[in-house]
Design a protein around this nucleic acid. Structure first.
Lengths: 326, 326
DNA sequence: ATGAAAGCGCTAACAA
DNA sequence: TTGTTAGCGCTTTCAT
């Protein structure tokens, strides 16, 4: 492996001049040409590690998500990757399992590996991203807000919940239950609020008993659905707070032979690998991919030196057909 | 961020001694303890970039897969990540979109970024991994074989196809169709062969007309299923060659109200987010996570200096309950 | 067993 | 514009 010293010697210049050529810093055309031809002859490729050690940076973006196996987050990852690649960055995907301790470890790694910046869908609003920001590296928080003043990309969750509920009401349903994620998570709370607003506005009712707080997992969806079906006055429709809750709930309904439209079902989030007839369930696609793309763009903008105060992007909860195509 | 110099000063030893403690080289117990406590106090974590520059190695493994959004490959990624992390490596996930050109780019990047090694689920047997091997970096091919002599981890696809088909036969089905991936892909061909073998062995028939060659996508599964249902003598059961074909096929069946057991359905590969009653479809879980784990272990073994001739691991196509739990 | 010191390959002051 | 030089944080001789 040739180094800049080899190139410098062959080209008859100093190593610094070679470095300048590599980095596009002004150098006389004659020397630049000599350097280029020497580099070519030696098949020189700059050593990223050395550069990283010196500059304390790299062209690697860390993406921390709670679950690579959740299709929503793989969509996000996809969006990040595409945008990053366009700008010459690569992406390291880290799986936090929604575990604050694992998150902490990955945030440290991001700094130690000299990653250029971090995009994180944090397990909690209180996730301490200070290690990264203190190192002067930009962070973009996605999916939920963070206590630190960093760029943020979230979805208009209230609107998503609201629109989906309105959809069910317009299909004629009245006793619409809402299976929500943990209400201490703002994402979950906002979506539930959208449901509540729609119910209040259209039906004049604030049906507290129809709200079931669950987790954001398949198992939670199953349990909540079973519980709802067991009630004396069972709901005629149900809104599921995320994709996994949707999967669990629909599984239960299938098992009971209770498929839509015998009961109304709306899901917040895509079901990319669902096996139910696509038309039977109202799916409110959330712009995961878009969120990833926007987050990457914001991060790269920071990496290029933008120093504005933190920006907050709120993506529409309802996708247009054009968004889906993209 | 603390460096070994900070730790050394606090512990009252030299940086070299700190380094020795970090690398498990003999040091008096008293100093070792002092170093460990100083490191703890400073929350010291060694800088991988610096170590990489010095040792000419890195602790990053490249993982190239055709599709992050396919649950099968996210399982693989999960397996790789867990095993790699245990050994102190991190994983960079790259998405090739099954595009040979993107693959080529990522393989180059792997070399240029000084990645320690590469695990690849290649788009084709002919994917040229020479760039990486020529740089002296180990490669492990997963999911399918590669023309280069490298370690390989594949699934016993014939057996998976065979067992799933036997299962359908034992449920009483006779006209069992097989929707296969592209037959020029060995994975697809082997699975179809398993189906053929089972049919021949148990029913004495080699029903060429019941084999439908498709792609490995949801759309392919939909199209194939529609076509099969349209036939005058329609099959009474169907074997789907991978998870996405399964999703597409089951979607169509749901839409037609033709859910199992009205028609037999077996899928090769897991349907982690299926919304059908789990019992209604025979799912032949493929050991994706295991494959990833084994591949990572093989790669790390090479990174530690193993020079044996290429090893080929064939994982059972049928998972035991214990495997599933893990 | 331990420390001093020399780099790994690169970039960025600082001089010239 | 160009070269000299001093590190980035770590590992590894080479002395002691």
């Amino acid at each position: 492996m040739a180094t800049i010293y080899d190139v410098a010697k062959l080209a008859g210049v100093s190593p610094a001049t070679v470095s300048r050529v590599l980095n596009g810093i002004a150098v006389s055309e004659a020397k630049a040409a000599a350097v280029r031809s020497a580099a070519e002859e030696l098949e020189f490729v700059p050593n990223r590690t050395a550069r990283g050690l010196r500059t304390q940076t790299s062209e690697v973006i860390g993406l921390i998500i709670p679950d690579v196996e959740n299709p929503y987050f793989t969509q996000v990852a996809r969006g990040v990757e595409d945008a990053a690649q366009k700008a010459g960055y690569s992406v390291v995907l880290c799986n936090s399992d929604a575990d604050p301790e694992k998150e902490r470890v990955y945030l440290r790694i991001a700094v130690l590996q000299n990653m250029a910046g971090v995009i994180i869908a944090a397990a909690s609003e209180d996730t301490d991203i200070g290690v990264v920001t203190a190192a002067g590296r930009p962070v973009v928080a996605i999916d939920r807000h963070n206590a630190f003043p960093v760029d943020t990309v979230v979805i208009d969750n209230r609107d998503a919940g609201y629109s989906a509920t309105i959809g069910l009401i317009e299909q004629g349903f009245r006793r619409i239950a809402c299976v929500s994620g943990p209400l201490h998570i703002d994402t979950a709370r906002e979506r539930a609020q959208g449901w509540r607003d729609a119910m209040q506005e259209r039906l004049g009712a604030t049906p507290g008993d129809l709200l079931v707080e669950s987790n954001f997992q398949v198992g939670g969806g199953r349990a909540a659905m079973l519980q709802l079906l067991d009630r004396p006055e069972r709901p005629d429709a149900v809104l599921l707070g995320n994709n996994l809750l949707g999967v669990g709930a629909i599984q239960v309904l299938s098992e009971k032979g209770l498929t839509p439209p015998a009961i109304g079902v709306a899901v917040l989030g895509s079901l990319p690998f669902t096996t139910i007839a696509p038309s039977a369930v109202s799916v409110m696609h959330l712009p995961g991919r878009k969120m990833g793309g926007v987050a990457a763009d914001l991060l790269i903008d920071r990496l290029r030196g933008n120093q504005e105060p933190p920006r907050a992007v709120v993506l529409p909860g309802r996708l247009t057909p054009a968004d889906l195509a993209g």
